[in-house]
């Protein structure tokens, strides 16, 4: 071997200041020369070696984000929040498949006749509410107990998951609605659904999320059941007044959730 690394080049390579071409030459040479490896090692600052090793370790064994986390990160969610969201039971593949199956049956019924469309419009608002019920809770989240003992604001976690689950379930229900073939009429479920989720969020101040969602679903089911014999179902499903009332309730609930002093911790910037 006729060429060896000079102490100056070893120093610049070790501290990272050497240009690309000399660095490549050094790396090729180090593979075959013990003496120069020792020279470069002696020039390498200890802190830099530790940093390089930590970086390698980070690249090798830090967990790879799941597809849900990658999707959420692309949508602007921070990687930490994306990890918290990915653990929501109702964002798991099994839940989503169940949701799609229910919606597919509802859409098939809706496509058959006008009666089917009404049935779809009565059932569809419940889909996001039921999905939200599975976002967080004592019997739903396996780490509920540990979560309650950490400083992370519980309501922030609940809101994060509700927003994520709501977005997914509303998007899925909207896509299915497109196949119903009734134009914008098929989207008449959206505002009642948002209003019900809003009421659920307000109720979580007093009861757990699944209980709140269950109560709202039960209330809705009772109201609809009472109206069916009186042929007033169209009022629930299609009337303009229903849409206006739903919009008002949704906005009012959103205001309560955002402005409530007790809930400010949920919106604070985390360290």
């Amino acid at each position: 071997m006729t060429w060896h690394i000079t102490p100056e080049l070893a120093r610049s390579y070790a501290d990272g200041s050497a240009a690309g071409a000399p660095s490549s030459s050094v790396e090729a040479h180090l593979l075959a020369c013990d003496a120069c490896r020792a020279l470069v090692a002696s020039e390498a600052p200890a802190g830099r070696l530790d940093a390089v090793w930590a970086e390698i370790q980070e690249q090798v064994d830090a967990p790879r984000p799941t597809w849900v986390e990658r999707l959420l990160t692309r949508l602007g969610v921070s990687p930490a929040d994306a990890r918290l969201l990915s653990a929501a039971p109702s964002l798991q593949v099994s839940w989503l498949l169940g949701l799609v199956a229910v919606l597919a049956f509802a859409a098939a019924a809706a496509s058959s006749d006008e009666r089917g469309l009404r049935a779809f419009l009565l059932v569809a608002p419940l889909v996001p509410v039921i999905a939200v019920a599975g976002a967080y809770g004592r019997r739903i989240d396996p780490t509920y107990e540990v979560t309650r003992s950490t400083p992370y604001p519980t309501y922030r976690l609940l809101l994060l998951r509700v927003v994520a689950v709501l977005s997914v379930s509303v998007a899925l229900t909207a896509v299915v609605s497109l196949f119903v073939g009734a134009g914008w009429m098929a989207m008449a479920w959206l505002l009642p659904s948002l209003a019900m989720v809003g009421v659920v969020l307000v109720l979580t101040r007093y009861v757990e999320l699944p209980v709140a969602a269950g109560s709202v679903v039960a209330g809705y089911a009772l109201a609809v059941t009472a109206m069916v014999p009186r042929n007033e179902v169209d009022v629930v499903a299609l009337a303009e007044s229903t849409q206006l009332v739903s919009l008002s309730v949704a906005v009012a609930c959103l205001a309560v959730v955002v402005l409530s002093p007790a809930r400010r911790a949920a919106f604070r910037r985390l360290p």
Binding site: P63, T66, R83, T143, Y144, E145, Y152
Partner: peptide, 18 residues
């Protein structure tokens, strides 16, 4: 309890975020 599907590192990291 443990999040279904999380690895050891992912689970501990999840609690570290909390």
């Amino acid at each position: 309890g443990f999040q279904r599907g999380f690895s050891v590192f992912e689970f501990v990291d999840y609690v570290a975020i909390l």
